[in-house]
């Protein structure tokens, strides 16, 4: 049962991305291009997402286990590091260049777009380079 729910959350998430317009890189770039003819529609994705997700996070706030006895893993870090800011800015740069962030890229890859496949492969290489450089040395 819990495996079916996990699969369905991925599916619902992907359907949400498709309906929202996030899987269309041209639209994402028109959202980020305030110097051109601006399409601010995608800000509503964040509004809708937060409005519903906030209820879910409120619900688990004081719980440590789910109904399936899974431990509730919420990030505990509160330290504001330079990695957080620099990493996020590098991500924003890549997002603006291609119009893809990770979720929509995976959905477009699933739809069979060759260019999304190229992006996803490069993204996986980028993740691996980061982990190789920074995570191995910490252990």
């Amino acid at each position: 049962m819990k495996n079916i729910i996990t699969f369905l959350t991925g599916l619902i998430f992907g359907l949400g991305l498709i309906i929202s317009g996030m899987t269309n890189p041209d639209k994402v770039i028109r959202f980020l291009d305030i110097g051109g003819i601006w399409d601010p529609s995608l800000i509503f994705v964040m509004f809708g997402g937060i409005a519903v997700a906030i209820v879910g996070f409120k619900f688990v706030q004081n719980k440590s286990q789910t109904v399936f006895d899974d431990t509730i893993h919420l990030p505990r870090t509160t330290h504001l590091s330079k990695e957080l800011v620099i990493g996020s800015m590098l991500f924003g740069a890549g997002w603006a260049l291609a119009g893809f962030c990770p979720g929509p890229a995976l959905v477009a890859f699933g739809a069979g777009h060759k260019k999304a496949f190229i992006f996803v492969m490069a993204m996986i290489v980028g993740m691996t380079i980061h982990d190789h450089l920074f995570k191995a040395s910490k252990k």
Binding site: I86, G87, L90, W95, L97, A98, F100, F119, G126, F134
Partner: peptide, 12 residues
């Protein structure tokens, strides 16, 4: 872009 997104999201 893919390299930046992959690297940046892991770092951030």
């Amino acid at each position: 872009a893919g390299l930046l997104v992959g690297f940046g999201t892991r770092m951030g």
